[in-house]
Design a protein around this nucleic acid. Sequence first.
DNA 1: CGTACTCTTGAACAATATCAAATAAAGTGG
DNA 2: CCACTTTATTTGATATTGTTCAAGAGTACG
Lengths: 224, 224
Amino acid sequence: MARFAAVPEAHASLASARQVYAPGTHLFHQGDIERGIHKIVSGTVTVYRVTADGHRQIEAFSGPGEYVSLCLCATSPTSAEALSRVETDYVSREAFERCLLQDAQFRQTVFREIDKASADARRQATLLACRCAKERVADFVLFLDSRFAPKADGYTPIRMSRCDIADHLGLTIETVSRMLNQFKQIGVIDMPRADRFRLRNRQYLNRLAGQNDEADSRPHGLAL
Amino acid sequence: MARFAAVPEAHASLASARQVYAPGTHLFHQGDIERGIHKIVSGTVTVYRVTADGHRQIEAFSGPGEYVSLCLCATSPTSAEALSRVETDYVSREAFERCLLQDAQFRQTVFREIDKASADARRQATLLACRCAKERVADFVLFLDSRFAPKADGYTPIRMSRCDIADHLGLTIETVSRMLNQFKQIGVIDMPRADRFRLRNRQYLNRLAGQNDEADSRPHGLAL
DNA sequence: CGTACTCTTGAACAATATCAAATAAAGTGG
DNA sequence: CCACTTTATTTGATATTGTTCAAGAGTACG
């Protein structure tokens, strides 16, 4: 968990500063103006928005290597909260825009990242539009399995609360809990505690989630 | 179905060709490789994907001035079908990529369009995650009202079928029909036929749809 | 230990889907 | 232009899914 600083930056013209956030603290808030860009070095960040009627929608659980809510509009459409201790490389808005103009390689990276964010959002929309509760939770379990390395005990940690999961999948905490425990019941996952699990039947979940979608997205060597 | 050539282009380096599609024909299909870029000149295009289990999700109803399913991956994640007679300016993949490298202004435009597509997808995900059937349909009616000019008789045409609407909103045709007729019943819309309507109480729909979200997105003069 | 959470579980309820007609609109061939 | 067929939409009845409400069971923390 502990990380050491070091490693300046790939892009010479991009002056970034390492920042550290304690669990539960915010990297930025919805509506912040001229906010800069965070790239996660370690830890997990919850990216969410709150709608006018008070619903919280979690758009993503972002991890190391990912940009947090990367978009062109300077005013943040989302809030970002550290789920664990989080380190980021932070670039001010000004430096970000300057670099976007000057550094072709950086521009390309950002371009692709935004494209990826767009694809992710569409994938999420499809999940919400076409899949039932069990399928959504199956998809989420597979996401956790692929993104979070198992700990020493062999179990993958579930760092977010049931409420976080529910707000991400468009369900209630009760439904999320029921589906997870149903998977546990039938032996698809091994979940000795609410905050960790291990896959026992990946194929079953794959079949539910329909892992086949979005098989394309070849990045192709566009130099920009 | 028939095609005519003609009409050069705003960007000198971007050689586009005018294309025409008859209602019901496809501009391209999901999985097409190295597909080029369409910008709609006139008409309406349905952008959709079909999931592994056969569900169709309509991602967008795009109109004049919009790019159709603009993204960086060369292999199309979606299909696009003309809902009416459609004219587009088409650019081959090759020309598109060349232009992206050479023309800074074009690059900026594409950059912003992809960012916008991303924001739209997130908005759709929020709609699907947080709103009930009535609210989704209210939102859709407002969308129709804002995007499709009323005809000579003062009524806004509903060009898509109930099935198209359902597949866009993650509902069934019966539910869409019921909600629309409920709005008609209580005098919120005037819908003499299934394929046209007129708003009678916009405020009611605004309140349902929560039109307040996404009030930001100031484009700000980034030159790229 | 005891207090405060979060998670789980059960039961009743509500929203939406599904199934089944009925109606309306749009084509089609005479 | 008129019957007839076909398709889309509306409406009703019922089933299902997921939510809501209400306890109960773990777990964390002082």
